[in-house]
């Protein structure tokens, strides 16, 4: 997927674009509306992530122009939500979704995925191994044609395993990936979720191995 990120704060821009690159997307990061227009004029993107306050104008104007062009590319707006006065809602202006600062990178991921799923309709990023088919974006796990429902946390954990297939992942690392902000989660919680995933993966030929003293590893051997 190719993303256009319009964000003038260098720290946010760097963090978000790194995160998107980590997720396997190509990112065009620009800091002005003029540059954003230039990118859109030369190439097509799959998703636009747009900050509202930019040095050369208001992101809402860009949004209005974008919609006037009848461009269907989904737009996720980042706002500082300060609705002291009644401003026109960004959703009314044609944003597909919006995120309020300060946001979680995980939430940004989740919302971007939802928008892409909605706009393209097709699974973008799926894994197949043995008789298993897994679409993390729609939380769908199919084993031998049978669909198994995954909870959100189970899905996120399984996706981490698939993206690092064959690598040993420590409990601490998994904890940070999934629950970095939840105070009530301990390494025992990881054991509980790994246990559930093993049940879901039962009969697929793919399994989560325990590496004594180091952590877990996804394997399809």
């Amino acid at each position: 997927m190719r993303f256009l990120l319009v964000e003038d704060s260098p720290d946010i821009g760097k963090a978000v674009s790194t995160r998107m690159t980590d997720q396997g997307h190509a990112v065009d990061w620009v800091t002005t509306l003029a540059d954003a227009d230039a990118v859109l004029a030369s190439s097509a993107v799959d998703l636009i992530v747009l900050d509202i306050m930019l040095p050369d104008g208001d992101g809402r104007d860009f949004l209005a122009r974008h919609r006037a062009r009848a461009d269907a590319t989904p737009v996720l707006v980042i706002t500082a939500r300060s609705q002291v006065s009644d401003r026109v809602s960004v959703l009314d202006l044609g944003a597909d979704d919006y995120l309020t600062k300060p946001f979680d990178l995980d939430e940004l991921d989740a919302r971007c995925r939802a928008l892409i799923r909605r706009s393209s309709g097709a699974p973008q990023d799926d894994f197949t191994a043995k008789n298993l088919h897994y679409e993390p974006q729609s939380s769908r796990l199919q084993i031998a044609g049978e669909t198994r429902a995954l909870r959100n946390r189970e899905n996120r954990l399984l996706e981490v395993f698939f993206r690092s297939k064959g690598r040993v992942l420590s409990k601490a690392l998994l904890l940070d990936r999934l629950f970095s902000l939840d105070a009530d989660v301990s390494e025992n919680t990881i054991e509980v979720y790994v246990g559930r995933l093993r049940q879901h993966l039962d009969g697929s030929g793919v399994r989560i191995e325990t590496v004594r003293g180091a952590g877990y590893r996804l394997s399809d051997h």
Partner: peptide
């Protein structure tokens, strides 16, 4: 007052976002 609240929101929330995102990234 209205401008002050809106400005404060923007000026405070944007750096917080940056710190949070950077910290999350660093952790990963």
């Amino acid at each position: 007052t209205e401008t002050l609240i809106a400005d404060a929101a923007h000026r405070v929330r944007t750096p917080l976002t940056a710190v949070k995102a950077q910290a999350q990234l660093a952790l990963q």
